[in-house]
Write a protein that binds this DNA or RNA. Structure first.
Length: 415
RNA sequence: GGGGAGAUUCCCGAGUGGACAAAGGGAACAGACUGUAAAUCUGUGGCGUAACGCUUCGGAGGUUCGAAUCCUCCUCUCCCCA
């Protein structure tokens, strides 16, 4: 090994910081090597992240990857966001087999703009470049596409978990979907990516990028994988469509409430992936929670405050904590809650039926559900449990009244 | 191109003429217990002021007193062979 290729303690320390929370790196010593390359050439590394131009929704799960990118930027590197306007023609085959609606150019542009807007909450805009992959994919003619496709085998593509599962379960797989990893791999070739970031579920795509770069005589990128942040339900990947997410622009109170509802076993991952609390400290906190030395609830409060401090500020975290205790320990009603202004058609002869009230406020999907909620004792009106599903309320009694369903859903009424 | 299997409620999956708004499981929701955690237990299960009411079982027609179940055509998927 040449002298200027030696991994100094400084480089190792930096690499270790960049590796925090990652679930995999391909190849294992890739980060160190790329850092050496940077040292040698002085040229910032190209850190790639590919995005689907679907409606942006930045939540903690997505932020895991973005925060990692930010770390690279802070070390002087260049982030290249690739908006997959062309790959959107295919639609990432991950997840369901339902065909995705085609997006128009305007929609894609609009979404891209929104993305950049939201990304800048976490990323350093000056070190973020946004490219559309139609720029190069759009240039490929059929012959070039075929040549490209010849570099990968069906067996390789079928290794990918999504495909393998769908194949095993007799689910349809469109031929064009097989091209997705290839198209994404070509992005890496086109921008000469040094590192490609992605969730664990992008493993195949990212490795395909490495393969293709090698095939085409380019420097191979390093794949840096982040674990998939499990959503609030504790089972599935955090995503907006499932609804098990915490949006990075949510109010402190909302974030706090949601974070307090995660299971204890998820705390460690959330600490590591969503906060900057040092790893040793996280380990200590978790250990204390597990041994019963500290009430796990208090560790979770800390977690919630840490996260709120990132997206709002520390003070907001404290406030949310106090508010949460006021509501849950003291049983008081929250300061903020959705409001519903009654409309003309909602009442009859100055009175409104509870079940109807639940339906119009959106707290129950239908009368049947509303009836059930009341019968089961899940509904209270101004703090008093509603026992009778036939109960009627006079309009005058409704102004400013608080309707509560279940443990945590409130609506304030307006007449 | 030939042969076979299939499409059921949020998901998986039973159901082959009436007892089916449709088994069972999962998810979800509510209650109890808690720390708005986990686990456990109980309850709910389309809509509907609830009614022997209305609309559901890929789509459109048909047979029948009666269809998720039978017939015809259509759409989509999977498997095997070529």
């Amino acid at each position: 090994m040449e002298t200027n290729n030696t991994i100094t303690p400084e480089i190792q320390a930096l690499a270790n910081r960049l590796k925090r929370g990652t679930s995999g790196i391909a190849p294992a010593n890739g980060i160190e090597e790329k850092l050496l390359k940077f040292q040698r050439t002085g040229k910032p590394l190209n850190i790639k992240l590919g995005l689907d131009p679907t409606a942006p929704d930045i939540h903690l799960g997505f932020a895991v990857v973005l925060r990692k990118l930010r770390q690279f930027q802070d070390c002087g590197h260049q982030v290249i966001i690739i908006i997959g306007d062309y790959t959107a023609l295919i639609g990432d085959p991950s997840g369901r087999s339902a065909t995705r609606p085609m997006l128009t150019a305007e929609e894609i542009n609009q979404n891209a703009k929104t993305y950049v807007d939201q990304l800048s909450v976490i990323l350093d805009r000056d070190k973020t470049q946004v490219r559309f992959n139609g720029e190069w994919l759009g240039e490929l003619d059929f012959a070039a596409t075929v040549r490209l496709a010849s570099r990968m085998t069906v067996a390789q593509v079928l290794q990918r978990e999504d495909f393998a599962n769908r194949y095993a379960n007799h689910q349809p797989i469109g031929l064009h979907e097989l091209l997705y990893p290839l198209a994404q791999a070509y992005d890496s070739v086109a921008i000469e990516a040094d590192v490609e970031m992605g969730g664990q579920d992008q493993t195949f795509n990212i490795l395909a990028g490495r393969e293709l770069q090698k095939e085409m005589g380019k420097d191979q990128q390093v794949g840096l994988f982040m674990p998939i942040l499990v959503g609030l339900d504790g089972v599935k990947k955090m995503s907006k469509s499932i609804g098990n997410y915490v949006g990075i622009r949510e109010s402190p109170d909302s974030m706090f409430g949601k974070l307090m509802s995660i299971s204890d076993t998820m705390m460690r991952d959330y600490f590591i992936l969503c906060t900057d609390v040092p790893e040793e400290e996280v380990a200590a906190l978790i250990q204390q929670a597990e041994s019963g030395e500290v009430n796990p609830k208090d560790v979770k409060r800390r977690l919630a405050r840490e996260i709120i401090a990132i997206y709002h500020n520390a003070e907001a975290g404290e406030r949310a904590d106090r508010e949460w205790h006021r509501i849950h320990a003291a049983g008081e009603v929250p300061a903020d809650m959705p409001e519903y202004a009654l409309k003309d058609g909602d009442s009859t002869e100055g009175e409104i039926w509870v079940c109807r009230l639940l339906v119009v406020t959106g707290m129950a999907k239908g009368t049947g559900e509303a009836r059930r909620l009341v019968t089961q004792g899940g509904v209270s009106f101004n703090g008093e449990k509603v026992a009778d599903p036939q109960a009627q309320y006079a309009l005058e009694a409704l102004e400013n009244a608080v309707l509560k369903v279940g443990a945590k859903r409130y609506t304030r009424l307006r007449v």
